[in-house]
Simulated scan of single mutants.
Amino acid sequence: MAISASDVKKLRDMTGSGMMDCKKALTEAGGDFDKAIEILRKRGEKVAAKRGDRDANEGAVIAKINDDKTYGVVVRLSSETDFVAKNDDFVAFTQKVADIALENRPASLEALLALPMEGDLTIEDKVTEMVGKINEKINLTAYEQIEAPLVAEYIHSGNRAGVLVGLSQNSDDAYNAGRDVAMQVAAMKPVALDKDDIDQETQDKEVEIAKELARQEGKPEAMLDKIAMGRLNKFFKENTLVNQQFVKDNKKTVKQYLNDTEKGLAATGFKHVTLG
Rank of each mutant, 00 (worst) to 15 (best):
I198L: 13
N159R: 13
A148L: 01
V191P: 00
V181C: 12
V151I: 14
E144A: 00
I155E: 13
V185A: 05
S157W: 09
S168N: 08
N159Y: 11
E147A: 07
P149R: 15
Q200F: 08
V181E: 12
L193C: 00
N176Q: 14
L150N: 08
Y175G: 08
V185K: 07
N170P: 00
D196A: 14
A142Y: 08
A182R: 10
Y175T: 13
Q169L: 15
L193D: 00
D199I: 01
Q184W: 11
S168G: 09
Y175E: 09
D199P: 11
A148H: 05
V191N: 03
G178C: 14
A174W: 00
D172P: 03
A142T: 07
Q184C: 07
D172Q: 11
A187T: 08
P190I: 03
V151Y: 08
R160G: 02
M188S: 14
A192W: 10
A174H: 09
S168R: 12
G162Y: 06
D172S: 10
N159S: 15
G158N: 12
Q184R: 08
M188C: 13
G162T: 00
V151N: 14
A182V: 07
A186C: 05
Q184P: 13
V151M: 10
V185W: 07
D194Y: 05
A192T: 04
L164I: 02
Q145F: 09
V151K: 06
M183K: 09
K189Y: 07
Y154R: 00
D204T: 00
L167V: 13
N176R: 11
V191T: 00
G158H: 06
D199F: 12
D173V: 15
D204L: 01
N159W: 04
Y154F: 03
I146D: 04
Y175W: 06
M183N: 07
I198D: 05
G178Q: 14
N176I: 07
Y154V: 01
V151R: 05
A192S: 09
N170E: 10
L164K: 05
V163R: 02
I146S: 05
L164Y: 04
V163H: 12
